[in-house]
């Protein structure tokens, strides 16, 4: 379990990194926190000729609040987001999700940009970003562009970012007045990739919810926005009846699959159990 030989570069600017990517055209990999990439290299599932270590690019890291949005640099470690008072205040959903992302040692090293770029369908953060109308900032040879999170995740491990582009930041709107978020997941052991997970976000007026978002992870190839269930709940009071309606709608929204630790049937069952939990928690914080 030793990686095949590779070259290593540590650029100090995004421009320099982009130059290296272009030069190696598809044969280079960007190293951020390394929590997914390094095991892949060690198992020789990936054998790039060059690793571009972006950890030396200072301005890729950090959390800032600008106007109505929070900007998180791609190289920001999970632990910084977990401990950030700005995140707790303006993006409470991320603060809720953080403790469920793997284990402290991984959160100390892993980055938000790495997690988003990797686009693991069982990861928590992509679903959070989709629920919050976030924008992914991508820098490439042609300059900087923004992509809505819901358009960024194309299919299993496939994103809108091109081979010669680098994900440079995440922009998330500050939570608006009257809105609440909820997060829940079921994993065999705490910190494992979930068998099923869900994030909910919406405006809560008493037990009536509107502008409702319900996004699942670990149930498909990408984060799954449960539009039928969202429609079913829109403007409704959270009660046994509406919860059952939302749960029923999931049969349309989700096409669950089986893997080693969870059958498709169990996934669907969990999606419904979790829907009830997050809906209840949204209106009874």
């Amino acid at each position: 379990m030793k990686p095949a030989a590779f070259n290593y570069a540590k650029p100090t600017s995004v421009g320099e990194a982009l130059g290296l990517l272009a030069k190696h055209d598809g044969d280079a990999k960007v190293l951020a926190g390394g929590q997914s990439l390094i095991p892949t290299l060690n198992m020789r599932l990936s054998t790039p000729s060059l690793l571009i270590d972006i950890n030396g690019i200072g301005d890729l890291s950090g959390i800032s609040v600008m106007g109505g949005e929070v900007r998180i640099g791609a190289l920001t470690r999970h632990v910084e987001i977990e401990n950030s008072s700005k995140i707790a205040k303006h993006v409470p959903l991320l603060a809720l999700a953080m403790p469920s992302i793997a284990h402290p040692a991984i959160r100390n090293r892993g980055t938000i940009g790495g997690s988003i770029a990797m686009a693991d369908p069982a990861a928590e953060l992509p679903a959070c970003l989709c629920a919050l109308d976030s924008e992914i900032e991508i820098t490439g040879p042609a300059g900087v562009r923004g992509v809505a999170a819901k358009d960024f995740f194309k299919s299993l491990y496939e994103t809108d970012a091109g081979e010669n582009e680098i994900l440079t930041a995440i922009k998330i709107p500050k939570i608006a007045k009257g809105y609440r978020s909820a997060f829940d997941e079921l994993a065999r052991r705490h910190g494992d990739y979930a068998m099923c997970g869900v994030v909910a976000h919406g405006k809560c007026d008493g037990d009536i919810i509107s502008d409702f978002r319900l996004v699942f992870f670990a149930v498909g190839g990408t984060p799954v926005i449960a539009t039928d269930a969202m429609d079913a709940m829109e403007g409704m009071a959270v009660n046994d009846e509406s919860i059952i309606a939302a749960q029923k709608a999931l049969d349309n929204d989700l096409e669950t699959f089986s893997d080693l630790h969870c059958s498709a049937t169990l996934r669907m069952h969990y999606a419904k159990v979790l829907t009830k939990r997050v809906l209840t928690s949204l209106v009874k914080p």
Binding site: R189, H190, G191, D192, Y193, L260
Partner: peptide
Amino acid sequence: CLYSPEGQFLNGTMADYLVPMAVE
């Protein structure tokens, strides 16, 4: 230890072979 019907070992990593952890 999970196997396919053809005898392929399916969960040979610490992410897929679940050992008990302190929290549980």
